[in-house]
Write a protein that binds this DNA or RNA. Structure first.
Lengths: 202, 202
DNA sequence: GTCTATATCCAGATAGAC
DNA sequence: GTCTATCTGGATATAGAC
């Protein structure tokens, strides 16, 4: 009788090549810009001819899509690995810092995930679902800090995205906005947990 | 004696053509995306051949540069035209709203001015100077509201840019973040003007 | 699986006639 | 000022041999 192998060596090899393609794609995006990624460069860097890439990805957009998934998975992993303090204020501080630092680490990743910088690129349904997982993890973290309310959460995302955007656009190698995180989170928590949240009249 | 004309009709005509080129450039950017602007389309839409554009602009980048200046001048004008209330809180609310609404009005303008979405494009020294005028006007407005401190101003820019970014990215035709402006500004003013601004310890 | 060869199309820019 | 003609280079993608 023929033994049926439990490992599919061919599939493993294929996955390894795909992983290599994506690694190199990120590398090129970091030097040439996210939009500057070309299949020529990509193929050259892994010792292939451009058409061979089509064995692994059906189009260039499919490569961006896979990168989009990868980036979101990295953020998901970061959120999972983190040990979260019980104190809500501390947890939110950490959450904001994690997010801003993750954004700063890799500019093309930030652009691909959070800005819509590639013309005509929209994540596939599958890729979008992964992005939604990130959103939901964030919401859980938020709820875990004892906070509720969709408006409150929308303000939260605006704060974090604003800090990231200003830091990356105006001081990419420094900490001008990074170091304001704790103050901003405190401002936010004080506001959210204040006994009266009536708007002032003008 | 020969009369010396006080108007240079030739220069006027040239300026008019330049204005038309820029108008059409914005129009194309709105339909094809900012990066999708091509000199072919541009020339076709104004009834010229592509090489003729070079009589007016020395390169495509120069066109982006002029658009960058134009966009900033529009924002400057908006800031100048606005009547500013004396009450600081009301003035800041208005300022934030003006900025977010300006951003929402025109996506490519927002991308060109505030995101770095065109690869290899950096504004020329002249264009950058105009952008700085906007920044300084904003600072003046801020100081006029009786507020001081560079950290406080950095927080302010983060709040406004975060509200804009979330609104445009996640609800471009709605008001999900727009309607949070007053609450966010109040939170901010309360924080800035609070007697004690010590950070909480965790 | 990877290749060669090629299709198809696009871009920005320049030379030089008129 | 605007044109024709052209340069030079880029891109993604496909057909089909091996």
């Amino acid at each position: 009788m023929l033994e049926i192998p439990t490992r599919d060596r061919r599939a493993e090899r294929r996955d390894a090549v795909i992983a290599e393609i994506l690694d190199v794609a990120w590398e090129i995006a970091r030097t040439e810009g996210l939009a500057g990624l070309s299949l020529r460069d990509l193929a050259a860097k892994i010792g292939m001819r451009p058409p061979s890439l089509y064995w692994y990805f059906e189009s260039k957009r499919a490569i961006y899509d896979a990168m989009f998934v990868q980036g979101n998975q990295q953020l998901l992993a970061r959120l999972s690995e983190q040990e979260w303090p019980d104190d809500p204020r501390a947890a939110l501080r950490l959450c904001a810092r994690l997010f801003v630092e993750f954004s700063m680490e890799d500019l093309p990743r930030y652009q691909l995930l959070f800005l819509r910088t590639i013309p005509n690129f929209e994540p596939s349904a599958h890729a979008y679902a992964v992005a939604m997982q990130v959103y939901e993890q964030m919401r859980d973290r938020f709820a875990g800090a004892g906070l509720v309310g969709s408006a409150a959460f929308d303000i939260w995302t605006a704060l974090v995205s604003g800090l990231s955007a200003q830091q990356i656009a105006n001081d990419p190698d420094g900490d001008r906005w990074l170091r304001l995180i704790d103050e901003v989170v405190d401002m936010y928590v004080d506001h959210i947990t204040a006994p009266s949240r009536q708007r002032k009249r003008t």
